[in-house]
Amino acid sequence: MTRPTARHRDITAGCFVCHGAAAFWTSANAQALAVQHHDRTGHQTWCNIAMSVTYGSNARDDCQIDIEDAIASTRSGGRPEPVLCAADDA
């Protein structure tokens, strides 16, 4: 089974000796930079990683007015035409 999936990672890293608890590296390779800094200097470094995953995509809103509805409203003298959707039936 395939589904639309989006992943996003937020990474911050720093060196306790050089920067304290403040983030110094924030790019996609912040973790690698923290490791390299530790290897070169022996300083204690840290890295926080937050990952967000979204499955699927937004469902189509059948009540949303689109360009075709705007064009159709010009035939009615500029008045919007009524849009019926499932929520109106409840």
Rank of each mutant, 00 (worst) to 15 (best):
N29A: 13
Y55M: 10
A34R: 03
D62E: 14
V53D: 02
R75I: 02
R79V: 08
P4L: 11
G14L: 09
C15D: 15
Q64G: 01
T74F: 08
T74D: 00
A13V: 02
A13E: 02
W25E: 12
T2K: 15
Q31P: 00
G78D: 05
W46E: 04
T54N: 11
H8G: 01
D10R: 15
G78E: 06
M51A: 15
H43K: 07
Q44M: 10
S52Q: 12
A13Q: 03
D66Y: 03
S76F: 13
E68A: 14
Q64P: 00
A22C: 01
F16R: 15
A72V: 01
S57I: 12
R9S: 09
G42L: 05
T12K: 14
S76I: 00
A13I: 02
N48Y: 02
G77N: 06
T41N: 08
T45M: 04
P82T: 02
V35G: 01
R75D: 04
C15V: 10
L84H: 09
G77C: 06
A87M: 06
N29L: 08
I71N: 02
T41G: 03
C15M: 09
H37V: 06
D66Q: 11
Q36F: 03
A32C: 00
T2A: 13
R75F: 12
P4A: 08
A70F: 08
D89R: 14
A13H: 03
L33C: 02
G78S: 05
T12P: 00
I49C: 07
V17E: 15
C63Y: 11
A50D: 08
N48H: 12
S76W: 07
P4H: 11
A30F: 05
R3D: 02
Q44V: 14
A86Q: 14
E81N: 13
H37T: 11
D69N: 10
R3E: 11
H19D: 15
I11T: 14
A34F: 02
D66A: 05
G14P: 09
V35H: 09
